[in-house]
Design a protein around this nucleic acid. Structure first.
Lengths: 335, 335
DNA sequence: CTGTTAGCGCCTTCAT
DNA sequence: ATGAAGGCGCTAACAG
């Protein structure tokens, strides 16, 4: 019956009138940044605000405060499972800390990346989380100059505060696993050379190979995209010639691994028997494939937590240790 | 050298001062909602604004205008590929129309759904796009009462404006495909019974079966979640008994299909030879599996466009026609 | 078309 | 601890 009243947006003024105090008192009582007062006035104001269904107008509040409780996240695409996992982890963490995470996607295009960054900045975000860093990228540098709080995740430019997985260690675990299984003819399919993750995972693999006395000729290293398609192509070129075929492949990303597996199937090879494959990130799908995929699990939640920590104060580069998850796609080398 | 100047945020006042006109003139010239004036003053103001690097303060603007150019999107989770595809389509469409899409995730929990809705509303979004509708859900009804502009996508409650795929038709296409291939022992694994998509896809399948004179006993219908895991379980229970085993399975979602395929592999069956499997949505992964998956392609972009149209004026329920994409996972019944 | 005037809802000195 | 007053940056009436 009192529909009109329902539709009216409740402001501080309404709460003040209803509780018989001034607007500023209400504002202070309802300020969530300071420890809540236990005075009777405060109690009453809170109760009235609740009854009336008061909700702070973020625009007015943000305009006045400067800060907005919003952090902007930039990812290449959300349809990349790794990025979706990363964003969800950031969103969860932000929410737990009382912030809201908004995301923008920009593909792999640096120009689009800048545009998206400005869009996010236009929305007065308190800080920026970038999962898009290229080693040759100038965006982080320009953010540093402009004094924009930001942190890089998953990939770094080597300078800005970054929350990463320990890709070198992960690469080492994956390669070491294959070496331990007796493989000596091993290929590595890694991601785009402009990402620190691709380089570091390869570097870690090289270390394991050196330890195990395994050669890694250049022809056995393919740097490509991070999509399934790329893995498919790489797998085909590695597996087509039966004579030079490796017995194991480390794909520096689960998508790449899935592509490699598809190529192996197409070549009539059974993964886990004829050829071993290790992926990276351990996306949920990895364990649910027809042949469950051995992978290196990235600690997304830990990375998200570090990232938000680094947004607060200036900090260095952190690296969360990953874990090898062995499954059926890797097996001991048939002698 | 003029770092200080760089750090200062440029406001309308600055632009006004620099161009020798009043603030309101600048405001009007820079108003992107009206056709841009070609007068010399306007030209000059635009140039100055550009040089100074003016960017509208969305908070101040939003506070004054009421509208914010932001639409809120609610999905269960972004790690569900279907939802990631849907959101990306909405984001693209929104951007093309000059809006910005923000997303919140809420799992499958109605309470969380309400919380997330309020969070989005608190951010003064101009409208809400919900991909979370349950048939028994009261949220759309409450949004209708409160007069909040909203549209449902992919799933409907049957009342609020909705932009859907034509799930009945899609279910028909999938089942008809199997019938045409000669299968008569067919099972259907569909999604949660509280989603319109699960019910409609099953209804479409039933129509195809009826047309083809194929029986669908209750034991051959499994309603479950929309995750890979659910598909795996359903597949196992359908395929474990060789005597009663169906020769084909329609999974009303690619995740379910992937789970079914994994179960088939585990049971020593080769998909496409021993058992045919059809999925739904045609996520990019579907075509890249070891055995490429036959699927029904959902027109996400078309759905996104309809959704934003419906947000404008009140409208009915639209259904975008899907397309069957036949691949190697389905084959003619070996006689 | 231009400028002047009043706020949008909130926060924050500054007094009390 | 409270209230009064001013203003964040922008836009919408209102006059000229």
């Amino acid at each position: 019956m009192d529909e009109e009243q329902e539709r009216h947006v409740v402001t501080l003024k309404d709460v003040a009138a209803a509780s018989g105090v001034s607007i500023s008192t209400v504002s202070r009582v309802l300020d969530d940044r300071t420890p809540p007062s236990r005075s009777s006035t405060a109690e009453k104001v809170r109760r009235v605000a609740d009854e009336l269904g008061y909700r702070r107008n973020m625009f007015a509040s943000g305009l006045r405060r400067g800060a907005t409780g919003t952090i902007g996240v930039l990812v290449p695409r959300l349809t990349d499972h790794v990025m979706a996992l990363m964003f969800e982890a950031i969103e969860r963490t932000a929410r737990a800390r009382g912030s809201f995470a908004v995301v923008a996607t920009c593909g792999d295009d640096p120009a689009e990346e800048r545009r998206a960054t400005e869009t996010l900045l236009d929305r007065n975000v308190d800080g920026l989380v970038l999962a898009t860093a290229r080693l040759d990228d100038t965006l982080p540098a320009s953010l540093r100059e402009r004094g924009v709080p930001h942190v890089l995740v998953l990939r770094t430019d080597g300078v800005s505060p970054s929350a990463l997985g320990d890709d070198e260690a992960g690469g080492y675990f994956a390669a070491r696993h294959l070496v331990d299984l007796g493989h000596r003819e091993i290929a590595v399919v890694t991601g785009p050379w402009f990402t620190s993750s691709a380089r570091d995972r390869l570097a870690g693999a090289r270390r394991a190979f050196a330890e195990g006395g395994v050669e890694l000729p250049d022809a056995r290293v393919i740097s490509t995209g991070y999509g399934i398609e790329s893995g498919h192509l790489a797998g085909r070129s590695l597996l087509e010639d039966a004579a030079s075929r490796p017995t194991a492949i480390f794909a520096a990303n689960d998508n790449l691994a899935i592509g490699v597996v598809a190529a192996a199937s197409a070549a009539g090879l059974t993964v886990g028997r004829d050829v071993s494959v290790v992926g990276y990130n351990d996306i949920p799908l990895a364990g649910m494939l027809p042949v469950p995929l051995t992978s290196v699990r990235t600690a997304f939640d830990q990375i998200a937590a570090s990232a938000l920590d680094l947004l607060g104060g200036p900090g260095p580069i952190t690296r969360a240790l990953p874990t090898l998850i062995p499954r059926a796609s890797t097996a001991a080398l048939a002698r």
